[in-house]
């Protein structure tokens, strides 16, 4: 499995475990579907929780008010791009 695929699965598991998404499997998460609102149906509290998990897991700090953060959280694919670019481990 390539590093990219590994990270994709790792992030899916991070989302499922952190947000306690019962009845959701990694294969249910479409990398290009919206994470919030439609798609996975996450809300603003999930966004904060996910931000905290990214900080703990990859050392990535995000400004919750920044427009840029909104773009990073648009989909799993954009989240993955963020982690690849800014992870500290």
């Amino acid at each position: 499995m390539s590093e990219t695929c590994n990270l994709t699965l790792e992030l899916k598991r991070l989302i499922i475990d952190t947000l306690e998404l019962e009845d959701i499997n990694p294969s249910d998460i479409d990398p290009n579907a919206p994470l919030f609102g439609e798609g996975l149906g996450l809300d603003s509290i999930d966004a904060l929780e996910l931000g905290l998990a990214l900080q703990k897991q990859y050392g990535i700090k995000l400004d919750s008010e920044a427009e840029e953060t909104r773009r990073h959280f648009a989909s799993l694919a954009s989240l993955q791009a963020l982690v690849e670019a800014r992870r500290d481990n």
Binding site: L19, I45, D46, L48, E49, L52, Q55
Partner: peptide
């Protein structure tokens, strides 16, 4: 450690 936003809510 930081407080979980979900737990806080």
């Amino acid at each position: 450690h930081p407080v979980s936003p979900t737990r806080f809510s």
